[in-house]
Amino acid sequence: MSDAVLVTHDDGLAIITINRPEKRNAINGAVSEGVCAAVDELDARDDLRVGILTGAGGTFCSGMDLAAFVRGETTRVPGRGLLGIARTPPTKPLIAAVEGYALAGGFEAMLACDLVVAGAGASFGLPEAKRGLAAAAGGLLRLPRMIPQRIAMEMALTGDMVPAERMLAYGLVNELVETGGALAAATALARRIIANAPLSVAASKRVIVESQDWSTEEMWARQEEITRPVLRSADAKEGSAAFTEKRAANWSGK
């Protein structure tokens, strides 16, 4: 992995940092490949439970590196899109810790995450229309499912930046903290998730993500397919025993 992406692991948590502050963490090929490799490692390792995606130098990500695009450089992972998460987000929870700009592909990367913590000074937007481009890395598809359609339409058609406070009001941001505090708050949120049973967390995320396309007729049966193994697991018994015995649970992931 190149220096364009830095990864640290700490007690179940993977912190993935886009490290091109001199370019406002614009996405080139090395960034896409690096983040993709990091989220693949997150999913592959049993000792890693939650990931945080953030950016160095006070900026989350300003989007695709337009100079690299003009040069003809591939800025996407083949078959998986921008950062390797646009089309194939990780199965484990991924939290975006946003400071500064989350624009274009950077905003779309945030949309591919499950939870968002933002610093008060953060700005969000899809400026592709201002550059003769289109937000085809998930912005046009995911955003209208997450906030009111007319607001998504406004953002896509004007390309204007939107402050963090407005994104919080629309529910796109989970928590708004003081500028500079996003990573610490995201880490605290991750620790709350890591404290829970791995099978329960995995099944809960899967049902919430996949059920968007389920019909009313099939949704209960499909949910049962995913949650039945959780309810029959050793961790289900352990969690109940820990509650009745007033102690911390010792999760086995089985």
Rank of each mutant, 00 (worst) to 15 (best):
K130P: 02
L126I: 12
A136E: 13
M155H: 14
I147D: 10
R142I: 09
G159Q: 03
L140N: 05
K130C: 01
I151C: 09
L143Q: 00
T158Y: 05
P127F: 00
I151G: 03
M153A: 15
E154G: 10
M146Y: 07
A118D: 08
P144L: 10
A137C: 08
L157Q: 10
Q149D: 12
G159N: 08
G159L: 09
A122K: 04
G139P: 01
A152L: 10
L141S: 14
L140T: 12
L143N: 01
A134G: 04
A136Q: 13
G125F: 07
P144D: 13
A152C: 12
Q149H: 13
L126E: 07
G119S: 10
G119N: 06
L140G: 07
A134C: 05
L141M: 12
I151F: 15
L141D: 13
L141N: 08
A137Y: 14
G125R: 09
P144W: 11
A137N: 15
F124T: 03
A156D: 03
A152V: 08
E154A: 11
R145G: 06
L140D: 00
P127G: 05
G132M: 09
A135W: 02
Q149W: 10
P127W: 04
E154K: 11
G139E: 07
K130R: 15
E128S: 04
G119M: 08
E128Q: 11
I151Y: 13
I147Q: 08
A118M: 03
A137V: 00
